[in-house]
Design a protein around this nucleic acid. Sequence first.
DNA 1: CTGTTAGCGCCTTCAT
DNA 2: ATGAAGGCGCTAACAG
Lengths: 344, 344
Amino acid sequence: MTEPKIQDVARLAGVSPSSISNFLNNRMGQMRPDTQAKIQQAIEQLGYRPNNAARQLKTGVASMVGLLVPSLANQFFGALACAVETAAARHGCHVMTFSTFRDPDRERAVMADLLAYGVKGIVTGSALSDTEHLVAVTSRCPVVAFDIKRNDESHARIATISMDNAAATTLAVQHLVTLGHRAIALVTPPPYTLNRQERIRGFLQAVGAAGIAGELVIADATDGPSDPHGDTRLFELGRSAAARIVTAASRPTAAIAINDMMAIGIGVGLKQLGRRIPADISLIGIDDIFFCAAHDPPLTTLRQPIQAMADAAVQRILAPDEKPDGALFAPELIVRSSTATPPR
Amino acid sequence: MTEPKIQDVARLAGVSPSSISNFLNNRMGQMRPDTQAKIQQAIEQLGYRPNNAARQLKTGVASMVGLLVPSLANQFFGALACAVETAAARHGCHVMTFSTFRDPDRERAVMADLLAYGVKGIVTGSALSDTEHLVAVTSRCPVVAFDIKRNDESHARIATISMDNAAATTLAVQHLVTLGHRAIALVTPPPYTLNRQERIRGFLQAVGAAGIAGELVIADATDGPSDPHGDTRLFELGRSAAARIVTAASRPTAAIAINDMMAIGIGVGLKQLGRRIPADISLIGIDDIFFCAAHDPPLTTLRQPIQAMADAAVQRILAPDEKPDGALFAPELIVRSSTATPPR
DNA sequence: CTGTTAGCGCCTTCAT
DNA sequence: ATGAAGGCGCTAACAG
């Protein structure tokens, strides 16, 4: 239970602690090979590992970046966390992840915890419930946001990573139009976030450009069970929205969901209503979470390039001098089996 | 970018640093209320947060536990990470999570990283690819495993948290037998882990006790794409195993999958073969991941009490003196719509 | 090329 | 009830 320290290694190797330190930090510029060998052997013999706390205290920086997500139990954010971990590893960094459960107080608290750990920067995939507070954090370390509510001047110091949300819905509409659809619905929760607003804008624009009917279905259910993990709510919202798609005035033959979770809910709702997908109605999601492939039928979707986005987010923090890797990331249309030509 | 330190607070509050320290550690025994108030105000005014690295260096322990999972992109382990985070929070602890991607070298490396951070203990949900190494780690800090390959004497120092795996399959069989099934298949990858062996044992035993036919389908595909995230492989294995269920000599009218991911794959495969669930064949999974509810039809499953298990794992590390909270956790049968009476 | 030294920010006796 | 002092393990000058 008592770890060997740098002095123990130095003693065993017959050199001074600073040589060990140099060795550990790859400052081998002027070190004789035999010294290196001795050090290496002493380290292994003792099973020595440098104490991160001491190192951090001395250097002032941890080799950690912080990550905030609504919940790791949410498939999308689990995948995001995985991508961020991979991205950080490329820079020799570790990731400390916190779930906020969409609780503003908890969000504030874990931000403070992250700061106390001396993280090099914070990536947040959690909605910004308290903009003021987040902005304050930027004075302590770089902050990169994946989801942002507004995009005004107060966020100048918050870097934003985003897919081209308008392009996603535009591509979806174009795919559907090519298939022959003339009336399409977009199903979304209330557009509180910029992401959603952009998706709506892209939808409206594409539908207008194609000269077809666009039906906006805002699914809002305050009666649902509270949902700290963020999965259930969207799913349920989608399921209950299915009826509104079916009864919409413009008689849509296809539905675009604000994301895959909602699409899956819509799929279940539609089937309960006796509609077949895609024979009666086509369905498209956004994100490309794993279960799109397992859905019945496999779900056509617009894939978010999560790894590329995570790479960019981490790069903004750990290598801010490199060229900012693109502003908006392009969604990729993944055609599976939930879209087809409209009935009749 | 430069954090206030304890001295700054002391100066502003007009007291000594140690009073601040006492305040921070709730050693308020002899402190005058007005002093406390001054300190409190100074802290808020400066936005002061104690430096974790310094605290840890001094006290020797971090308030962190480590968590190893194959990948957070895997739904089950995302949920597990979430549960562990919640459990640790109850003890005022944070969690540092690493994905191993089932790479033994990486597993070793991140274990070492965790040790270097001075974690209080390590929870591993990753298969033990290198038992020797893990055992070595137990001399540095407590280790709790969720999934273990063997259970021999060498693991005496590794605490194990497990659902009663045999009970899960037994319950599944009993549920099916009650429904009227007389021939049941268990579909599993090769039983490399104790978990799987136990599930098989429970299955065989229950099937024998009921006097019905039990078909063991070992799905083994080395030709599949490598799958660092662990989702795809099981899904694909399930899908390709569907044909073997259908053609099995005992003509099973129901299938139990080793877990939900595989069950979902089996479901897709069965449908591709033209079989309806549950009309033609019943299907049961194990775990109760979120998508069971979204599956078509909603999947009957044996729920793992993840939160209770996470609580127990964390307790073993952070409060080892309390009574060990049960050895085996009971699975809970969640009946949805994928099971019904057999055809004819 | 390697050893010596002086803290990093905090906590913990021990005095006061 | 509060202040002073030493050191946790490591790194980064600077000596030698």
